[in-house]
Design a protein around this nucleic acid. Sequence first.
DNA 1: CCTAACTTACTTAGTGCTCGGTAAGTGAGT
DNA 2: ACTCACTTACCGAGCACTAAGTAAGTTAGG
Lengths: 211, 211
Amino acid sequence: MSRADQPLHGDGPVTSRRERARLRREEIILIASELFAERGYRGTSLADVAARAGITEPGLLHHFGTKAGLLLAVIERRDLDSEAFAMELLGMEPADRLRALPEFARRNRDRAGLAKLFTVLAAESLEPDAPGHDHFVARYRALRAIVADTIRSAQEAGLTRAGLEPEVKAAEIIATLDGLQTQWLLDPEAVDIVAAVESYARTLERDLTGS
Amino acid sequence: MSRADQPLHGDGPVTSRRERARLRREEIILIASELFAERGYRGTSLADVAARAGITEPGLLHHFGTKAGLLLAVIERRDLDSEAFAMELLGMEPADRLRALPEFARRNRDRAGLAKLFTVLAAESLEPDAPGHDHFVARYRALRAIVADTIRSAQEAGLTRAGLEPEVKAAEIIATLDGLQTQWLLDPEAVDIVAAVESYARTLERDLTGS
DNA sequence: CCTAACTTACTTAGTGCTCGGTAAGTGAGT
DNA sequence: ACTCACTTACCGAGCACTAAGTAAGTTAGG
């Protein structure tokens, strides 16, 4: 009768029906992420996703309601990953955060799909009535706030030069990292993303400390 | 008999049939630019463009052959504008070029559509087999080369700090300006693009001169 | 200078295909 | 008995694009 009991009937693996459905949704979200990254939201059809997931189109819609619903599920799932990274960064001393940037770039390079997903979806979400618009606006505002806070706490610790405006500098830092990523995605042979981010991290350190 | 004679038959304006067709294509390209900027290449149908241009779909295809042909025409047309800007920049003394950046931002702000067009189309061209891919790759390579050359000539004039890698710094500069533009397009209320670029121009001057 | 032949900027009509989404089941699991 | 993760069958709308014609503009020949 309690809501906490687990069936755990003897045969088969320990997955309940609910759990299996959740896993299926996760799997579909992963597949949709790849396709959205490659061809964009608009360039991907439900049939594409369904075929790769080994399910029918109505089967897909049973889980996500509409195509936009699938997009939102993808974005939310991917945000959990970024959030984990943000927590990782925030767990460090402010002074160490700069040094973590190249590691971030290295990780992104090895999972180019995730980076591409965000670049593509952000561009498709510029128009105010795009399905992911509000989400990306909120995401960038939050990101700027986190970076600005980091700068502000470095200021309070007396580690920075005078004349730094945290919000403006935050936008600039995020812009540089995003922009480098776009150039690298477009032309990986011409742009070494890890070297570029390492160089930028050094530039940024000089800029922030005023040395 | 010569190929240089102009008919100039008495009635109506002095536009020949060829000239009128060229003007019509220009007009269509302008309309397509707006729609591509708003909804992307994939999100825009030939019917959308045709309706706004007051022409039928086959009428459109008569001029551009295929939808991809229309996209290439749009990109080429828009490149002429950027090229004009690049020439303007290259006409200046290297030292003045930095100071021209905020003016560039101001111009872009007042014609947000053009900025949006490039941001959207670049994102849709990340995949190697996208219709505009090769073009954007070439464009970014050329852009990096121009900026890198500017840095190099400043180096030769002894105006810069030691340890500058022109190619890497060029990618970084372009990345920052692109990224700021994306954030501004997504959330114009939260990001003041002109102020951000002005601030970045100052940062960049300190960075390049090592002061 | 007139006219017949040709070119070109379109239009109307229609092609097959793909799109996102719905209605109505079905069958296994709870 | 009921839930729910699906399936089959289907829908109208929209897609890029084609075939075939038309009417106006341009050119060449007599």
